[in-house]
Every structure is written in structure tokens, then in C-alpha cells.
């Protein structure tokens, strides 16, 4: 047990935590923006997978990790455009369309990977130009803060994305309109705002962020692509959005929490006999509990709504 505690308190644990949390944070921000616009994006998972695949392939092909990174973003945007197209224009249910996008990403990436490598399951034989780790000299010398140094550009971008999401949602005209549409579409309509345009953009942004998140998995944390390597992180990001009550900072903390438990379960697995699964389960149970609480809140909110609606009749 002591071992565990020392392990947790060590700088390398923090380092691991940041690395593990990076894709979660990015995807959660993407999910948050889509959700705030009223279009719940269940396809985060597939978008990340697509990003991971594209990043690896283009990084390997061009031997330039930057190109891999940019193409990951592009692929996330393209795939999310498909979701937006089907949901907003062809009026497909967004949950089912999101599920389809997830499946599509799974099928497409493994199919193409086989085409490219001739081997199933993983990206054997593709030599990847991995993203360089960025060392921050000031932090490196400090005993604790050194774990904040030496991460990939994506990790730093993920932290920036939290600030960016906050500023975007609360400080820009577009963010305001986005929130108004998600909060009450008729408010947007009454003010002459195009709901579809707003949701298009929100979905595309979430696609871009997920593409970035995927790139972290394939060309930074590891240097390979494995079929289905996102392993539910997209859904976890969605849960973080919920756990954080749709507020950027809290969603960030929610994602960090999931990351922490993920890292913890690794530590426990290595160092103790304690079943890591039970640690891994904690965030899901927490999300369930949050869901119950939010369920109640939305009921109360509904009551307020009826108050407003019925008020006219009295």
C-alpha cells in the first residue's frame, strides 16, 4: 500500500495522468460544445478513432508528425460533417446517426489499415514520426512541476482547449448564440438566429477536437494504431461532460477525474493485488449517480417550465 501511495505522489504519476487525460479533455471539450448547442454528439468515440488512424497514416507517409496532426483534425471535421449532414439536413436521429458514425469509423479504419499494411489488427510496419515532447526549461528544474514538462504539443493544446472553450462559449457572440440555441431553440429563432448553422459549426468543432484527441493516442502516447484503440474514451468524455454539469472548467475536472482513476487502476494493477477493475469502475458509478441527480434537477426545471407555460392560463 505504501508503494502505491509513493507511486501516486511521484512526479511520474502526475506525468502519466496528464498524458492519459489529454485525449479525454479534448474530446470532452468537443462533446461539451456540441452539447451546449443542443446536438448531443455520441460519435466522439468514432471521431477520435478516425483521428488516431489518420494521424498515424499521414505521419508515417510524410514522416512529418505535424502533417499527421493536421490531417487528424481534418479527418475529424470531415467525419463530423457526415454526422451533421445526416442529423441536420436528412433529419436522422442524432443518437442513431452517432452510433453509425462510431461503427463507420471502426470499420473504415480497420479496413483501410488492412489495405495499407496487409496485416490485421494493428499498424505493423509503419514507421511513424512521433510528435516530439516539448520540454519547458523553467518547469524542468522544479521538483514537482517537472511533471508538467515534456509532454506532446497536444497535451498543452488540451489545456488550452479548456480556456479556449470557456472563452468561446462565454465571451464571443458565436458562443452566446450557440448556448442560446441549445438552451431554447425558439429563443434563437425569435432573435433571427439560424439554429442549423450554429449546430453545424458546433458539431464540426467537436470533430476537430476529437481528431486532435485521436492523434495523441496514435502518434504521441504510442506509435501505433490498434483496431478500436480508443476503447470507450469517447463515451467517457461524454460522461465527463455530464459529470461536469456542462461547465468547461468542471468538465475539465471531470475528465481529469476519469484520467486519474484510469492511471490509478494501472498503478494498482502493477503494484498490488487489489482488483484494478474496481478502481476503474468508480468514475462510471459516479456518472450514474450524477445522472440521477441531474435527472432530478431536470425535473425541477421542467416544473419551472410548466410554471412559465401555465402561467398564461391562470
Amino acid at each position: 500500500m505504501e508503494q502505491v501511495i509513493t507511486a501516486i505522489l511521484s512526479a511520474s504519476f502526475i506525468y502519466t495522468l496528464i498524458r492519459i487525460s489529454t485525449p479525454l479533455i479534448l474530446a470532452a471539450m468537443g462533446g461539451l460544445i456540441a452539447d451546449q448547442s443542443g446536438a448531443i454528439n455520441i460519435a466522439l468515440e468514432g471521431l477520435m478513432l478516425m483521428g488516431a488512424f489518420t494521424a498515424l497514416v499521414f505521419s508515417g507517409w510524410s514522416q512529418n508528425s505535424t502533417i499527421g496532426l493536421l490531417m487528424a483534425i481534418v479527418s475529424g471535421i470531415l467525419l463530423s460533417a457526415l454526422l451533421a449532414l445526416f442529423h441536420l439536413h436528412l433529419k436522422a436521429d442524432i443518437i442513431l446517426a452517432g452510433i453509425a458514425i462510431n461503427i463507420l469509423a471502426l470499420g473504415l479504419t480497420s479496413f483501410l489499415m488492412f489495405l495499407i499494411t496487409g496485416i490485421k489488427g494493428y499498424s505493423s510496419g509503419i514507421a511513424v514520426d512521433a510528435l516530439p515532447n516539448i520540454n519547458i526549461p523553467i518547469l524542468q528544474s522544479a521538483p514537482f512541476f517537472k511533471s508538467f514538462s515534456g509532454h506532446s504539443i497536444i497535451s498543452y493544446l488540451s489545456l488550452l482547449s479548456v480556456v479556449g472553450t470557456y472563452l468561446f462559449l462565454y465571451k464571443t457572440v458565436f458562443g452566446l448564440r450557440l448556448r442560446s440555441v441549445g438552451s431554447n431553440p425558439s429563443a434563437g429563432l425569435a432573435s433571427g438566429i439560424s439554429v442549423i448553422k450554429i449546430q453545424w459549426l458546433a458539431i464540426l468543432i467537436s470533430g476537430a477536437l476529437c481528431g486532435l484527441a485521436g492523434a495523441q493516442l496514435s502518434i504521441s502516447t504510442t506509435k501505433l494504431f490498434v483496431t478500436g484503440m480508443v476503447q470507450g474514451r469517447g463515451f467517457i468524455a461524454l460522461a465527463a461532460v455530464l459529470l461536469g454539469g456542462r461547465k468547461p472548467l468542471r468538465v475539465f475536472l471531470g475528465a481529469l477525474l476519469f484520467g486519474t482513476f484510469d492511471a490509478l487502476s494501472n498503478t494498482f494493477q502493477v503494484l498490488t493485488n487489489f482488483p484494478s477493475q474496481f478502481i476503474y469502475i468508480i468514475p462510471y458509478v459516479a456518472t450514474l449517480i450524477a445522472l440521477v441527480i441531474y435527472g432530478q434537477q431536470s425535473r425541477k426545471a421542467r416544473q419551472q417550465a410548466s410554471q412559465a407555460a401555465e402561467a398564461q392560463d391562470i
Binding site: K171, T172, V173, F174, L176, R177, R179, S180, G182, S183, N184, S186, A187, G188, L189, A190, S191, G192, I193, A301, Q304, A305, A308, A309, Q312
Partner: peptide, 28 residues
């Protein structure tokens, strides 16, 4: 309207200016 067309999750000021926001380069 009888049924208000306000966005409940936005502040009063945000609701009032919605659609014609005072802004500079897209920043509120």
C-alpha cells in the same frame, strides 16, 4: 408571446441582446 422565447440558461443581459449583440471582432 404568452410562451416566452427566452433561453433559460443565459443571463438576462445575454437574452436581451441576443441576435444583435454589441461586439468587437466577434467578442462580446
Amino acid at each position: 408571446f404568452q410562451h416566452f422565447t427566452l433561453a433559460p440558461n443565459l443571463t438576462v443581459a445575454e437574452n436581451v441582446v441576443l441576435g444583435a449583440e454589441p461586439s468587437r471582432f466577434g467578442w462580446l
